[in-house]
Every structure is written in C-alpha cells, then in structure tokens.
C-alpha cells in the first residue's frame, strides 16, 4: 500500500507546514465573520455617535444619542420587555430538558414525539406568525374553543397584559425542538452503567435525574442556555412583525424591533445604531457571564 503524496504544485504552495494548511481552512470563515460581523459592528459603533438620517452627511454629536435613550420611554419599555423575556429562560431550558429526558428514558412513541417537537423549528417565523395570528385573533379558533367550553374570549394579541406572553409562548413552541435535540444528543453521553448502578442501589427516578443525569449534561445545559438567550433577543423580530407590530402600545416592542423601526420608518440610523450598541453590550455581557460559568465547570 502506497501512501498518497501531495502533488508537487500543492507542496510548492503549502510547503510542508500543516499549520499553513490549517489557516487556509479557517480563512473563508474568518473573512465572512470579519466582513459581515466585525466591520458592521465597528461601523455601527461609529454611526451611533452621529445624527445620521440616511440622507445628508452624518454630523458627530458625541453621546447625544445615548443621552436621549435614557429618557426615551419607548426604549425603556423595550428594555423592560426584554428583561421579562429573559426571566422566562428557565422555562425555555426546563421544558425541552424534561421532555428530552422522558424521550431518552424510552417513553412509548418517543421517536414520534422527537419528530413532532422538532417540526416547528423548521418553519420560518413569518409562517408560524401567520398560523398563530389565525388562532389567537379575537375571532380566532382559540377563542372559539374557549367560548365552546363556556369561558369568555380574550384578545390575546390586542391586550398589553397578554400580548407579550402570547408572543413568548408562540416562540417557545416554535423553537424548543432545537434545544430538545441538543439535550437528546447530550443525554446519549450519560454513562449507562452509572444509571444502572443507581437503579440497583434503589435510587428513585427523580433522584437519578437530579444526581446523575443533570450533572452529567450540565455543560450541554449551559450551552443551550447561551444559545437560547441569544436567540430570544435576536430572532423574535419575525413573530413581532406578523403578530403584534410591537403593540398594543409598547407591550411587545423588543429592542431589535425598535432598532428596525428607528432605522427605516423613522429615518434615524444614527439613533438606531445607539440602540444596537446597547443591545450588543447587554448581550455580550450576558454571554460573557454564561461562558465564564461554562469554563469554570469545564475545569472542574
């Protein structure tokens, strides 16, 4: 058996340095990140210090955009909405985790459930929005059902006290399948001998979950938490756009929706950049804390 040798031309180009080959593989991804992430980020940072309106040349106004953010009630409401959204994180992690453990432990029809739960994750948010628009509108099917069982209908999307939670519930429905799959992958790494040993020792179901399953997939849970948090803050736009348009009032206006509103409809890219920077700083902070926790556990 002869080992395949690289051609002379390729050897000339790469030399015998495997590191150089490694760089070659990394460069396309790196270029994409730099062109589409890093450059716009720096650009946006610069724009946030200007009064740019998209038409005439921007003028440097220092921190004025950031100062007006502090007394913009719409921005403040969007931050409060964001915090409410973040407070629901345990549900976004807990629900798929419990379902994943149940499927992993072999409930009847587990494979079917896995497919069914994952199915909404392949739908675009606009389609999900259109479906739930029909279900949740005042004269929609959900209220018809409520009326059928003698309850009074609720304007789920037109009422400030229910609109944000309706939106969160729909987004949760649409995306928890992805976390479920991540957890299932993680659960397959839980050593089965440990589970069996626990069983033989007479450990109860909950004890097995609490002392064996969850600690073994803790890094996976933390990973899912980071990914879910970022998803919550950056990919609700489609749903908001279709279901509530940010209303009633500001009750479903999240920072990302406000950025879009200020940038295009209000012709204030400078101000929108300032909101983007605040959102970026918050997310970077959150991600930093979560990654710190992850690496602390990794070194355990």
């Amino acid at each position: 058996m002869t080992e395949r040798q690289p051609s002379a031309a390729r050897r000339r180009f790469l030399g015998d340095n495997p590191e150089r080959l490694g760089w070659l593989f990394v460069v396309p991804a790196l270029a994409l990140v730099i062109i589409f992430r890093i450059v716009p980020l720096i650009w946006g940072f610069g724009t946030s210090f200007t009064d740019y309106n998209g038409m005439v040349a921007p003028r440097f106004i220092g921190l004025a955009n950031y100062a007006s953010l502090t007394h913009d009630p719409v921005f403040m409401d969007s931050i409060v909405n964001m915090l409410i959204l973040l407070a629901t994180l345990p549900i976004w992690i807990g629900l798929p985790l419990v379902l994943a453990i149940l499927i992993h432990q072999g409930v009847p029809g587990g494979k079917l459930f896995r497919a069914v739960y994952f199915f909404p994750a392949v739908l675009s948010s606009v389609i999900v929005g259109a479906i739930f628009n029909m279900l949740l509108r005042y004269d929609g099917s959900f209220n018809a059902m409520l009326k059928g069982i003698g309850l009074s209908p609720v304007d789920w999307l037109g009422n400030s006290s229910t609109a944000l939670f309706s939106l969160i519930a729909v987004q949760l429905w649409a995306t928890f399948g992805m976390s479920l799959l991540i957890f299932l992958a993680g659960l397959s790494t839980v050593p089965s001998d440990m589970l069996e040993a626990a069983k033989l020792d007479g450990a109860k179901l909950m004890a097995t979950w609490w002392y064996i399953v969850i600690p073994s997939i803790r890094p996976i849970i933390e990973f899912a938490a980071v990914v879910t948090t970022i998803g919550m803050l950056t990919s609700m736009f489609g749903l908001i756009y279709v279901l509530t348009a940010g209303g009633p009032g500001t009750s479903t206006t999240l920072p990302e929706f406000l950025i879009w509103l200020e940038q295009g409809r209000m012709n204030r890219p400078g101000y929108a950049s300032a909101i983007s920077m605040v959102l970026f700083a918050m997310m970077a902070g959150l991600a930093f804390i979560q990654i710190r926790i992850m690496s602390r556990n990794a070194s355990l």
């Binding site: 009630p73 400030s160 009032g249 409809r265």
Partner: peptide, 27 residues
C-alpha cells in the same frame, strides 16, 4: 412620522384603558 408612531401606540393604550386621554395627550 414620530408623532404618527406615537399616536398608533397611544390609540391602542386608550383602547385597553392603560392610559387616560390627558396622559396620552401630554405624551
């Protein structure tokens, strides 16, 4: 446009009863 956007919001809040006419007008 800024007035229009805010009127959209206030008109909805007036319907849900979360604001009063005076508060909405002040805003």
């Amino acid at each position: 446009t800024a007035e229009t956007e805010e009127w959209h919001r206030q008109s909805q809040l007036l319907f849900t009863g979360e604001t009063t006419v005076d508060k909405a007008l002040a805003r």
